[in-house]
Nucleic acid binder design. Structure first.
Lengths: 214, 214
DNA sequence: CGTTTCTTTGAATCCGGTCAAGGTCCGTGG
DNA sequence: CCACGGACCTTGACCGGATTCAAAGAAACG
């Protein structure tokens, strides 16, 4: 497991969102945080590391829902069961809080309910954006838009990728080979430059965003 | 425009969800209810007819977000601007309410806030399901899952389709030709039978759902 | 330094897209 | 009531991009 590059970032110490009802937990790489169909009475915040949510099909195909980074909340679900599973991309620290505990939380209650509302609507926005990327085919467009949003999140010039090629493929609805070929092509077109498998920098932002097209 | 088949359904008179702050409106087929980037201070409920939300790209491609039917709420948005536009699939009656009016709504307030919360989380669930369908490629799977969810919504044996082939294509991320070919194939495989362009019945439910694979 | 795992590359195949007719349905007007 | 016209849908032939299968190449790890 080679998650080092990502975990050794200046792991932006971020705020504990849940206050007194939050419980700190640690997960090793690839460890499961919650499973599909499990009761969804907890909500989570990433403190360090990164998390992915995914849904597995009977025939082995996998759809990744999203990736979550320090500061972000995940685990909000429409129903009372998780429709995706969540697991640690690398070693990570997670804060968990009982959803049902919010109502017995006195002065914090309003703030927490607002927090959950915001996180849920933002989740909706992310999902819509993801949908939009999957809908319009074209491997180049998909990969380019993935790289752009990754780069936007990074503060440094060099953008780290917390996930494997397979993860990217399952996120975009492509095969790992297509993702790899497309990355190679984007690189030889001079739009991005990779430093190892899991770090890259955008060389020509305008060129990249031209591929995406709003 | 041949929306008759759908509009002449026993148009399930459904409850007015908004009470005193709701305003009844009527839209003709293809008329725009709200536009992309427009302020999102209203929420809507379909009373009669059907509605589609969509997002247009600069190059003409279109992604349909979802279809809404009598009783369902739409127009909830993560931000304060609409990220999709909405328009009438056929002639329809819509109920609209100012989101900001909810807080001045006295005894109804709690109920309305709960309603909006439920609608938003359900919207999230629908979007995730849609994402899931788009992610796993295969025209057959996509079309089959579309037909299945349409059939599940219908009370009658004969399922009406409120939308055109082009709408289905833009919903599933396929071309109209592929949708058409796939429908023909499903029919000649004896899984469904079409009566005209916009009505079908499921002949072998098990066969259809086998194509979808959870 | 060898082994394992992940990634890249190559060649052949296949599914869906594109382009171009042809067919069907439906509303209109003779 | 039937003929016409236009919009929508289906079908066919061809093409291209993504998948598949297979193997070689790079990193990470002990």
């Amino acid at each position: 497991m080679s998650e080092q590059a990502f975990n050794e970032l200046p792991s932006s110490r971020c705020m504990d969102a849940f206050g007194p009802i939050g419980v700190r937990m640690h997960f090793a790489a690839e460890e499961e945080i919650y499973a599909q169909e499990e009761d969804a009475d907890l909500i989570y915040q990433v403190l360090e590391g990164a998390v992915r949510t995914s849904r597995l099909l009977s025939d082995g195909r996998r759809q990744i829902g999203d990736f979550y980074y320090p500061g972000e909340l995940f685990g909000m679900e429409p129903g009372d069961k998780h429709s995706f599973s969540a697991d640690a991309l690398g070693d990570c620290t997670i804060l968990a809080a009982k959803r049902s505990a919010v109502r017995h939380c006195g002065d914090q209650r309003e703030r927490l309910e607002d927090l959950i509302w915001k996180a849920t609507t933002q989740e909706l926005a992310r999902t819509q954006e993801h949908l939009f990327v999957l809908g319009r085919r074209g491997a180049c467009e998909k990969v380019a838009s993935f790289l752009m949003s990754a780069a936007k999140r990074a503060r440094s010039d060099l953008t780290p990728l917390a996930m494997s090629r397979q993860d990217i493929a399952d996120y975009l609805g492509l095969t790992i080979e297509t993702v790899s070929r497309t990355l190679t092509q984007l690189q030889s077109d001079g739009l991005v430059r990779f430093a190892g498998y899991r770090n890259f920098q955008v060389v020509r932002p305008a060129g990249l965003s031209r591929l995406v097209a709003a």
